[in-house]
């Protein structure tokens, strides 16, 4: 690791002032589970590290009809939260799938979203959930919709002096949700992951379906073709399967040491089908 200066401010304003002063030379340190490996490898060489762990940003609350997560909510806290399990079980499921127990002890919601790994679970879940991000800097704050937040492989619209302070999403009560992912070894980053949110109308037809896929492109994204194919249809197994097939045509993933693009395409279809099937069965189980 290269030497750097370090500060652990106690207030958000202090943190923002430090970021304003050091700009691109500074790095925010949250759980460190992505940043510290980069530092260990000397792939990141900041001159200044702003440790945000003392900031009061670790709250989970339901507020103005939205579930709001502070940026410093740990993956383990998220996975164990009763409020989240009730209001937004997709996040519970997603958080439990992240890494190993040590990663979940320290890793944070904000860190995962700011790091923006294309195969990470939380960015995927936020895309499916239509989440909103609260960004603050010494200059002020702004709210960014999820579709605008991720801008490419490991990049977001966060500016060097900005802090992600919270993320919020509408609860999914009444809907069925599921995450399906496939990795070579459980606990590793997924090769492909799919999140699905389904609501069923009174007639027993799909009212709305939201499907997001990760591990394919530089950023997780929705698959409207699949969503549209289901809307208004009865959620029978063969229809789900046919809709899920569309996912394969929508993706052109890359190959790497762990899997070929062709295989990832196969997974995109299978995981979409399985995520939808589970989400549908959960949606059907929701008391009307």
């Amino acid at each position: 690791m290269q030497p750097f200066e370090y500060a652990a401010p106690a207030s958000v304003d202090e943190a923002l002032a430090l970021l304003a002063r050091h700009g691109a030379d500074a790095k925010v340190l949250a759980g460190g589970q992505s940043l510290v490996p980069l530092l260990n490898y000397r792939l990141a060489r900041p001159r200044f590290v702003v440790d945000v762990n003392d900031l009061p940003l670790d709250e989970i609350r339901v507020d103005a009809g939205r579930v709001r997560l502070g940026a410093l909510v740990r993956h383990s806290t998220l996975a164990a939260s009763a409020v989240v399990a009730r209001e937004c079980p997709l996040l519970t499921e997603a958080a439990a799938l992240i890494g190993n127990v040590r990663v979940r002890s320290l890793g944070t919601v904000g860190g995962s979203l700011a790091h923006a790994d294309p195969a990470a679970e939380l960015p995927l879940a936020m895309v499916a959930l239509d989440a909103r991000f609260e960004l603050r800097s010494a200059r002020g704050s702004r709210t960014v919709e999820v579709r605008d937040f991720f801008s490419g492989y490991l990049t977001t619209v966060l500016r060097p002096d900005e802090l992600l302070t919270s993320v919020d999403a509408p609860p999914t009560r009444g809907a069925g949700t599921a995450v399906e992912e496939f990795s070579r070894r459980p606990g590793d980053f997924a090769l492909v992951a799919v999140a699905a949110i389904v609501t069923i109308d009174r007639q027993g037809r799909v009212e709305n379906a939201r499907v997001a896929i990760g591990g394919i492109d530089g950023v997780p994204r929705r698959i409207p073709a699949v969503e549209n194919a289901l809307r208004g249809e009865p959620p029978a197994t063969d229809r789900i399967a046919r809709a899920a097939e569309l996912a394969r045509a929508e993706v052109t993933p890359q190959s790497d040491a762990l899997a070929s693009g062709e295989y990832r395409t196969l997974l995109a279809g299978v995981l979409t089908k399985r995520a939808l099937a589970r989400a549908v069965s959960r949606a059907m189980a929701v008391p009307a």
Partner: peptide, 19 residues
């Protein structure tokens, strides 16, 4: 490199000592 920090397992290779 696992140690317990505040009773929870962490990778001590991924934690800054000052923190």
């Amino acid at each position: 490199c696992t140690v317990l920090l505040d009773g929870r397992p962490v990778s001590s290779c991924l934690v800054l000592a000052v923190a």
